[in-house]
Design a protein around this nucleic acid. Structure first.
Lengths: 367, 367
DNA sequence: TCCCTTGCCGAAACCGGTTTCGGAGCGAAC
DNA sequence: GTTCGCTCCGAAACCGGTTTCGGCAAGGGA
């Protein structure tokens, strides 16, 4: 009503009506030709698509949306509340999603929330206004309110991570459990027998998985995990420092520690410095995330890296497939993390309390 | 007339037609009532808006868009190419925008690009498909292709930063120049006379502004800047280490350094360690950004902090105002950064070559 | 009383697409 | 020569809103 300001006379969009007039066809025919309906002659289809190309016709997404119910937009609700371990990867993640989406001429709608209730409310609003056709749900929990919302509203979604109740769930994830399993075997292969554990944020699925992977790795290496060398809920540098100090103050301290997160490892570095232990010399550390800080740490931190950009891209195209009707059971993918070996897990001094001749992996059961 | 409850196969949205039927009005009337047209009786308007509230009516943004041309969506194109200093703030930034937008029931559409050409192409696509009504342009340059695109297409935009040609530009920015000016005066107040400079990324406007602020501060303090103590193009930790080493190797090294970016300061920390100088004891450092790393650095880094979340929020609401017709000249705001004094700029030893009685322009006294 | 405003609302066009329906044209089968 | 069926397209309804236009009724001045 009021404004009608400056922006007059943009280069007038070419609409489907213009196209139809140019071709001497009905606009319905043009629409069907463009959308690949079977009742259009091949020659006509070609003529139409060529003219569309030539005239630079781009269908208006909103106009399509009101009839088809598809906004051609992917939703992503970020939790901006607490300190969030995946912040440094956010740009890569967004980049991956954005590229995956724009390959199909879809777009990405981002919203933020400060807690779980807010997340659900925000998602509900986006659904209600039909702003998005589906959601990418990062950082999944074993029991996740967002998933329940999507299920209840029958809105398509894909998990970046896994969850407890998998009915109707599609997901893409990195196998943190395999990485942790592998990490233990690697350390055991170096001769370590007392291996500690710093786990991640509670609630999240990945925490359970990585922990399970650690335990499975210990079992596979023929080692018995010592509960007093295991700490959970370690997801900041400070947490890592505190928990690390506790481990190192142990009467029989670990010679190696597996961390579920790089930040925990970085905290452990601090603890080691305070406890007079030197990472990479008399304490081996392996971690998970592949964050940039790991590379510049001293000593450089061996870590299992996640290709967050690729994950974003995969999630986008999988979600689009899901929206287009692919069954969720056919959209489940777990890929391995990539080990980036650096200096933190190769000790320069002999491992204390580790018999030089110790047969390493599965065979002997020690102590 | 069977009423709609959320039942199987998708909760049926309540449309404007439903509302009209319920009220016994024409849907055009309902629309005008909701949109505040003057030709609707006050009583009717009330009745309508109450019913809309009660029935949970939410206009479908896409349907409105096709007539009004407004998608009620803000566009943000992120450059995911090179190492980007504002990555750590991205979550806050998105959160601010998202909140500012959702206060008015707008949404945020995010896309990424890897270089300037790609940015412009991505924006063109969003404009072309009318996915967004306007853009937030972060990290502006003195001469910025994105601004030229927006001007050429007459699509509303707002800068997070400033630029050379201000015609038609609205912006929100933090006064980096005032901060740097203030930093110099603060250091001069502590008695420093040889003050170095580590500037930021070239091309970007903020780099020029902060540099100008530094120089203005020097002038105001009655000091003559020494070009051999000034380095520019320092925007990674590595750059900072290299440039810092050069400064500290100077025959007459600076006793204090002002940095345009926290990362540069962190690099300077490394250089100082290597050069046998101790930040906070015999080298004062002040920086700009207020990044979390600054707080945990050793010694904690004095820095001018930017409230990125508030900036995002302001940008969102200003852009919406711009889209609604407010003139760009009325949407220009520059707010000060906030000094977070920590240990890095208060030396514990006397400043070499600095007469104790040095006259300083401001009234600050050493305790 | 008549006419002219003015306030308020209904009806319908419109936005740019999609989808349904029906029918023209044409070749083949009976 | 019909009839049938198939291919291919036009016409129109539709989606959920907005905006224009016109007209009815009440009110006021002559």
């Amino acid at each position: 009503m009021a404004d009608q300001t400056s922006e007059c006379s943009g280069p007038t969009r070419v609409t489907i009506k213009d196209l139809a007039a140019e071709l001497g066809l009905a606009k319905g025919t043009v629409s069907r030709a463009l959308n690949g309906y079977p009742d259009i002659a091949e020659g006509t289809r070609l003529r139409v698509s060529r003219a569309a190309e030539r005239m630079g016709y781009r269908p208006l997404a909103q106009a399509q949306a009101i009839r088809t119910g598809r906004a051609r937009s992917l939703g992503l609700v970020l939790n901006a509340g607490r300190s969030d371990a995946h912040k440094p990867f956010l740009t890569d993640f967004l980049d991956g999603i954005s590229r995956g989406a724009s390959e199909e001429s879809w777009t990405l709608t981002v919203a933020t929330a400060e807690d779980e209730a807010d997340e659900v409310a925000t998602m509900a609003r986006l659904i209600d206004e039909r702003k998005v056709d589906g959601f990418i749900l990062p950082r999944t929990k074993m029991r996740d309110a967002r998933i329940e919302l999507c299920r209840a509203q029958s809105v398509p979604f894909i998990l970046y991570g896994r969850t407890g109740d998998t009915t109707g769930c599609a997901w893409f994830d990195i196998s943190g459990e395999d990485a942790m399993h592998d990490a233990v075997l690697r350390l055991a292969g170096f001769g370590h027998r007392r291996i500690g554990w710093l786990g991640g944020m509670p609630d999240y699925t990945y925490t359970h998985l990585r922990r399970d992977g650690f335990l499975a790795g210990m079992a596979a290496a023929g080692l018995v995990p010592d509960p007093s060398l295991m700490a959970d809920g370690v997801f900041t540098v400070e947490d890592g420092a505190v928990a690390g100090l506790r481990l190192l103050d142990h009467p029989e301290p670990p010679t190696a520690v597996v961390c579920a997160l790089d930040v925990a490892a970085l905290g452990l570095y601090r603890a080691a410095a305070r406890a007079g232990r030197a990472v990479g010399r008399d304490l081996a550390v392996i971690s998970y995330d592949g964050s940039p800080e790991a590379a510049t740490a001293d000593p450089p931190l061996t870590s299992y890296a996640v290709d967050t950009r690729a994950a974003g891209r995969a999630l986008a195209s999988m979600l689009i497939a899901r929206i287009r009707g692919t069954q969720p059971e056919d959209l489940r993918q777990v890929v391995p993390a990539r080990l980036i070996p650096r200096a933190s897990d190769r000790l320069s001094t002999p491992i204390p309390d580790a018999p030089r001749e110790a047969a390493v992996p599965v065979s002997t059961r020690l102590a």
